[in-house]
Amino acid sequence: MSRKGLFLSFEGIDGSGKSTQARRLAESLRAGGRDVVLTREPGGSPGAEEIRALVLQGDPDRWSAETELLLFTAARRDHLERTIRPALDAGKVVICDRFADSTRMYQGLSRGDLRAKVDALHDLMIATEPDLTLLIDMDPAAALSRAKARATEEERFEDFGIGLQERMRAGFLALAAEFSDRFRVIDGNRGEADVARDVAAAIAPHLP
Rank of each mutant, 00 (worst) to 15 (best):
D97Y: 11
D139K: 03
R111L: 13
K18N: 07
F7G: 00
W63C: 12
D194S: 12
L124Y: 08
F172C: 07
G191E: 14
F72L: 15
A120I: 08
S16K: 01
L88E: 07
D89M: 06
G44M: 08
A142I: 08
I51F: 12
D59S: 11
A151F: 01
M105C: 13
A147P: 02
R190G: 02
L134Y: 10
R169V: 06
E11W: 05
E66V: 12
A143L: 12
F99S: 03
R146G: 14
L6T: 00
L69T: 10
R150N: 10
L132P: 05
V199A: 03
D35Y: 02
D159E: 14
E166D: 05
L132S: 03
D139C: 01
L29H: 04
L164F: 15
E66Y: 02
A177L: 11
R76F: 04
E66M: 04
L164C: 02
Q21C: 01
P42S: 05
A204T: 10
F179D: 12
R40I: 04
F7P: 01
T67E: 15
L38W: 03
G33S: 04
K4I: 00
A196G: 02
P130V: 12
G33W: 10
V195L: 01
P42T: 06
E49T: 09
A193T: 09
D78C: 06
K4N: 06
V37T: 11
F179H: 15
D187Y: 08
F160A: 14
D131K: 01
R82G: 05
H122P: 10
A204D: 13
V94D: 12
G17L: 04
T128Q: 15
A176N: 11
F160H: 14
R24G: 02
S45N: 05
F10Q: 10
R98V: 07
A193I: 07
A65R: 14
H79D: 09
I186S: 13
